[in-house]
Amino acid sequence: MSPRRTTTTAVLAGFLLSACTTVGAREQEGGRELLVFAAASLTEAFREIGAEFERQNKGVTVLLNFGPSDGLSTQILEGAPADVFASASDRWVDEIEANGPGVQSRTDFARNSLAVIVPADNPARISSITDLGARGVKLVLAAPEVPVGEYSRRALGKAGVLEPAEANVVSNEQDVKGVVQKVMLGEADAGIVYVTDETPGVAPAVALIDIPEHLNVAVTYPIAVVGDTDESDLASRFVDFVLSEGQAVLRRFGFLPPI
């Protein structure tokens, strides 16, 4: 074989080998996989909960898919094989119940509230949610269909600054983490996120400003076992785990217990 041909063969063999090992690794461990779709705001907490659940259930792999709840719901409606769906809003679980595979069970497992997020040096000198309507503030929100985007607009409405704030929006992000990112990088002057989004990774670069309770929005997170799962038992066990041991993790990341 010429050197070039050897290289090509080696590259092809490499691809094949890596493809085989990926498949092999999944099938090896008894083949039990749990596909959990979770709202982007749950990213850090659910990574930990998922890892702990794997530790306690040998041979089980928890695959986590994070994104905006509306997008996750659409994926499930389009046939994504989710076993568990943890949403930041009832609306998108309702959607699955009404137009999709339905749910086997559904429980509220956490609560959250909103806060204004600004870069650590707060260039626009924001001190309250009403400042978000001030002229020239570069505001980033999640898109209106995304739960946190909807909640944000509700809070701005309560504060009486929805219209000027909407005019200040420079970007509608796909999920709450997109808002955090744009503020963390200092490109936006402010955004609205969940109080739980000040995670260790971003805390040094940002500051949160409280939104008083009468202007805030009570956010409840439902978790559901998706109707057409073929891992019904495992999915229920995961939900139970989130409701029991998972609670401590959620508390640590700032989530409130369900009512």
């Binding site: 997008g71 269909e145 420079v170 509608n172 992000e173 490109e187």
Partner: peptide
């Protein structure tokens, strides 16, 4: 585009961005 310019209708929301945003809730 979405990383650098963000996503705002009429200013930086190009067709691919609009497809992505719309897909989330309205396939």
């Amino acid at each position: 585009t979405i990383t650098f310019a963000g996503n705002l209708r009429g200013r930086t929301q190009t067709l691919p961005l609009a497809v992505f945003e719309t897909l989330q809730s309205d396939p």
